[in-house]
Amino acid sequence: MTGLLEVEDLHVWFDLQDGGELHAVQGVSLSVEPGERLGLVGESGCGKTTTALAVMGLLPPSASVAGRVLLDGEDILAGGESTIRPHRWVDVAIVFQGAMNALNPVRTVASQIVEALELHGRARGAQARAEAGELLESVGIPAGRGERFPHELSGGMRQRAAIAMALSCRPRILIADEPTTALDVMVQAQILELLDALCRDFGLALLLVTHDLPVVAQLCDQGTVMYAGEIVERGSVDDLFHAPRHPYSRLLFAATPDLDGEGDEVASIPGAPPRLDRPLAGCPFRPRCDSAFSPCASLRPRLQTVGDRHAAACHLNGVPAEAAR
């Protein structure tokens, strides 16, 4: 299996003020094939956004990164900024959280799209402006609105404009980091439909980072569940929702409110994720797990295949022989 984008054994550490280190991402491996849609889910602080930013080399200087990010087999992080920059926006583009100030407030929306087009030599001058207008039309914004400033557009429109900007250089992979968070439900639905349609029309691969499970169910084929900087389970969205093999995935999906469910109370997982600024012994989820047993305290479970493109890191699936030794 050769993916379009492959992340191999990615580690990210952040330097802390007190001199310590926070191991935010601990050996994450991902693979996205052309046109595939992968959902990366987990609680806040589990390292999913950090993983997404690391793929584009966008982490702040306080972060140290190890591991490889392969695009068509080429390690784009190997040479730092100089090897990653040519791929930004051209091959991999990103859409940030809806609530974020992702557009520059003192420049018109169109000029920011034109900037991307001109930077990567897609078009110049009047042609670039015309193309920016077409891009805006393609996400449902009248081209004339491009001459407005970001604050003159609604939150949903701004997010559409950000998507149009991300598509300007026809990337093959779109990373969407919580694209619908902080938008109201109707607008959320519209943005998701838009992403869905665009992925289909442009043959885009999508890496969707979210804590919102229904969004993953609606948009993605594959899912990856992260906990405490690690992948605890990955598989098709079907498998994850209907036959999870890790207690965390099971509890996470159970915690999603159900419209026609009988229960009045929304289920939750008691406790909080472990701190990542110190080494962990055993399974990171053990303190919150409802089915922990003897090996969990001392042995760190490894991700092991449990089905077709389905893997989980849990001792319940059998303690691997070499680890049990």
């Binding site: 040519p86 940030f96 407030p105």
Partner: peptide, 9 residues
């Protein structure tokens, strides 16, 4: 938007 600008290349 500075992060966006970096992401744009």
């Amino acid at each position: 938007y500075i992060l966006t600008a970096r992401a744009k290349g």
